[in-house]
Design a binder for these strands. Structure first.
Lengths: 208, 208
DNA sequence: AAAAATTAATCAATCGATTAATTAAATTTG
DNA sequence: CAAATTTAATTAATCGATTGATTAATTTTT
């Protein structure tokens, strides 16, 4: 592909991702995407087959990116506690960068209108799920962790993230005292989030 | 109002709430609402002024219902621990009944496209927020609870609920091993959720 | 008879998508 | 290398369908 072709494709992908995340799938018109990206509407269908094809392409882009990232974590020869902390750190560190696409995915999954997209999203999210599950199960097997309702614990971890990302207005009310739209995910809050999740897991998996 | 008028209004409200929760605001057409409710499209504008007015009416209905429910909890002369458990029990017990409207609210808040609706939602959700905050702060003040990052703890509680309601496909994967659309919020799961939240709060607020 | 409720028909606007025509780039050929 | 040809990329215009909303006429209730 030439540089121009890549430019056009990537510009559409980048603009569309932001608009989809801000407005949702239905409220984002192909005309708006084309206008903001500075390209003709037909290019959107030319490259991606249509609005839904573009949506899938955005998810698949992050899907492959995320797959590469996930591979080299669980191979290390460290304790279950350290694995847990590494996972939480990397999980929280990724939040700022992947905020748009995550908001997008959870909205889409919540509605479950487009089954093809839904399958993609579930496949992507289940990767994280399996990874943390394995860390905990291994820890239980080697006696580091107690046998507890780890699924609920995992639900609380992912849920806390969703609350900060997808319910940011009311989360701002909780953390800042007002529900405006200033940036909630400050570095300070992410540090607090890491400490909180580590503490929660540690207490739950050992002191119970 | 006559019985017929009430029937028509309430039928529209009930049908629209389900459709909005299932499809989202944009994907739910006024024609579909009218068809499912068995009324003329014009009735929707006649009673509610339009699609968005209907949306607001649905929220306000739950808004007032919820306000009545919230009043008589915090007056009891019980310990902070018991208040916490009462709150969690009532919070979880309300999940099944309010699942549709809660899914709807969090989707709407996540997109934040309609500021009038957003204000309503934030006002409604902040009631729960203030209530649990007061319980914890009182507990800290009277020495029952440790001084901890209670805001993060609250975020985890609300987040866990959102995860079960709005991310139900991947939550089903976590709890049932498959991501189908069978009912996730079984009585058994709600019991587990209660136990988990109580344990999480107790550990966090005392053993840290 | 007056008011309220309901209906059918239609409005302009916007949607995603597609077409045919045009320009730019790449490839082949002499 | 350069002209000719083919392919790729882009544009403007338009398609039918659907959207939320409204109107005027009709039926029902008071």
């Amino acid at each position: 592909m030439t540089d121009n072709r890549l430019d056009t494709k990537n510009k559409i992908l980048a603009i569309a991702e932001g608009l989809f995340a801000d407005l949702g799938f239905d409220a984002t018109s192909t005309r708006l995407i084309a206008k903001e990206a500075g390209v003709n509407i037909a290019m959107l269908h030319y490259y991606f087959g249509g609005k839904e094809g573009l949506y899938v392409a955005i998810l698949e882009k992050h899907f492959t990116e995320n797959r590469l990232r996930l591979q080299n974590i669980n191979n290390d020869n460290i304790s279950s506690f350290e694995k847990l902390e590494v996972f939480i750190d990397s999980y929280v560190d990724n939040m700022k960068r992947t905020r748009s696409i995550q908001r997008l995915m959870y909205i889409e999954m919540s509605l479950s209108l487009r089954s093809k997209l839904n399958d993609h999203i579930i496949e992507l999210l289940s990767k994280n799920l399996q990874q943390i599950k394995k860390i905990i199960e291994d820890g239980v097997a080697n006696g580091t962790f107690n046998k507890v309702d780890s699924d609920m614990l995992i639900a609380s971890m992912f849920g806390t993230k969703i609350y900060l990302i997808n319910a940011s207005p009311v989360a701002s009310l909780l953390f800042n005292g007002h529900a405006n739209n200033e940036e909630l995910l400050t570095d300070e809050l992410l540090v607090r989030l890491k400490a909180h999740l580590k503490k929660m897991f540690k207490l739950y998996l050992t002191k119970s």
